[in-house]
Write a protein that binds this DNA or RNA. Structure first.
Lengths: 337, 337
DNA sequence: AAAATATATTAAAACGTTTCGATATAATAT
DNA sequence: ATATTATATCGAAACGTTTTAATATATTTT
């Protein structure tokens, strides 16, 4: 195994000098530097990470935590965010340790290994995540970033989707194609993202004067259960008991929308002629479904990349005031609208 | 930060002794041991991994490599395998580093970071994976395990699905429910798993004497493109040009089967009355589709767990002759058959 | 009773880096 | 010419562990 010593010997310099060029720090003459670099290359020397970490007291890892169910679920949403982070991490030599936390998480007993053993320099939390965990990280002064989630009343470093405008634009497109009675179906209403999507929905209707008395009562179906196809099916089946059927349904996300499509088809209504449906997220299934689902595309890789970059900034400068970076979306019109 | 020195001082022993109890090695009296353990607990001491790794020359990491497209895809198959590994790893203090490799992978330039920098003690490769990578690992004497993939003509450590029996049983169930003309639709025919599924399909038909002259020509549709819904749709649309329609279709996996369902519905045929469909994998979508897809369940978490265990064995004993562990499947009958 | 072995503890070296002064020379400012 | 400052290099300590070999005592075997 070739070490920094071998390089130093061969280059006739001290290991300090080699270390300096390795980290390009301090002063070292261009000639020596180049000579050393060549030798490093020739011998295919790679600094041993564990030694380096011991000396620098950094771990070189960052943690990625998601709620267990989110990772077991049908869709790749959070895996894509992970992938975005991994791509970004490749350039800065960080490794990403992925773990899940249980629903009934308790920091006393269920702390992820990498937190327990101090094996990460920072953490990204994606999606809905136990508040006790966030508080724990905050108390421990562990740098962290929330992705696609926020805790009401608290300001943390976070990367968020521009849910409000995404919803606003999507519903506006429905309006512009002539829809008048636009319904909303959603689950997990306690989730800030969903709340924002609902706000976008509501405000665009208001601005086009499409909210009559009782509209919200009749045409919105909100639950606080985890979003799922079932929520979509159930929501639609209730909506379809109205005497005046909605002519479009904006769903809080694609999973819900897929359920909605299923239920509408089961009731023998035509999509999009009778009822148009629009989702949110652009999960891969959306493009393969029959009919193909119109939706708001969330750039998941970008979300991961930005989370990584923000976390890096926070690690480098821990006393930075908390900031939020908004990632904008794109409306994708397909067959369902 | 509390180190082994602090423990030693407080316990009035040398750090060697503390280290010994930490790794329960050598001789240390029960009394001292307990005293030390208590202090460790009181001070909440955790050995610093980088220091430990430096001393032991182990990395404490194992790599998980999948083909890029497999991780970007619709289904969570490989993420679930990862999760199974992660669960298993929790007990033995390994971290798992996930990375993807590109389709046109070249070991000279595209080597995953953790291989380039020697940051893993072993590697799990899941699904179809560049042969050049496998050869590279073999040459480097890096312990590795293949999951759900094999390279024809080579014997490597691997954890495989019992594809043959899975297919055999699934098709047998179709036969027992009275189906006579059972078709096969598949992609990626170069993949050993798919070959095995096909073999199971063929042999059960033979054993029930259901393969007439020309059956395979008429009723099997094999492509060597990556499996996808499109493959399923296309395969079915060709099958449905036969004068005597098949009364059941066994698909090489669920993704393909979902495409098949779509195409059958588009042609206004009834499932399962006119045609039954059975998939393979039991991806989450299978249970949510309309109709719900009958399929062969592959225990993905278990697959990951076994891969991890086997890799561990190989790391501990590198000269073990290569072995293959077969994971058996379960037929899940739902609405489509 | 002596020799051999098992038990218990430790000092010191080693693992491969980074970093902090120290030292020396070269360039620039006074 | 002298004092500063910039450039270049290095020795040695430090990071927190594990491990080897040494030492000491207790127990067992001969």
């Amino acid at each position: 195994m070739v070490t920094i010593k071998d390089i130093a010997k061969k280059a006739n310099v001290s290991i300090s000098t080699v270390s300096l060029v390795l980290n390009n720090k301090g002063y070292v003459s261009p000639e020596t530097s180049e000579r050393i670099l060549n030798i490093i290359n020739d011998l295919n020397y790679k600094p041993l990470h564990s030694a380096r970490k011991l000396a620098t007291r950094k771990t070189g890892n960052i943690g990625y935590i998601i709620w267990e169910n989110h990772f077991s679920e049908v869709e790749m949403f959070y895996s894509q965010i992970f992938l975005g982070m991994e791509y970004a991490a490749r350039e800065s030599d960080y490794y990403i340790l992925l773990t899940t936390v249980k629903d009934d998480f308790d920091p006393k007993t269920d702390l992820p290994r990498f937190l327990k053993y101090n094996d990460v320099d920072g953490v990204v939390l994606a999606g809905r995540v136990p508040h006790s965990l966030v508080e724990y990280l905050d108390k421990q002064r562990m740098p962290f970033v929330l992705v696609d989630y926020g805790i009401p009343g608290k300001i943390y470093n976070s990367v968020l989707i521009d849910n409000y405008n995404g919803a606003f634009n999507a519903v506006e497109s429905l309006i512009q194609s002539g829809r008048k009675r636009i319904a909303f179906v959603g689950g997990t209403f306690s989730h800030p993202s969903i709340k924002e999507r609902f706000r976008g929905y509501k405000e665009v209707l208001e601005s086009y004067n499409l909210i009559s008395d009782g509209h919200l009562k009749k045409y919105t179906h909100l639950e606080d259960a985890e979003t799922s196809r079932e929520i979509g099916e159930k929501g639609v089946s209730i909506l379809l008991t109205e005497k005046l059927l909605p002519d479009a349904i904006f769903c809080c996300n694609d999973t819900t929308a897929l359920g909605a499509l299923t239920e509408i088809q089961r009731k023998k209504l035509k999509i999009p002629q009778d009822i148009a449906v629009v989702g949110f997220d652009d999960i891969p299934t959306a493009a393969f479904n029959l009919p193909k689902l119109s939706t708001v595309r969330v750039p998941k890789l970008l979300l991961g990349k930005e989370a990584f970059k923000l976390l890096n900034d926070v690690i480098d400068n821990p006393r930075l005031p908390a900031q939020t970076r908004l990632i904008s979306t794109e409306f994708i019109k397909r067959e369902s609208s």
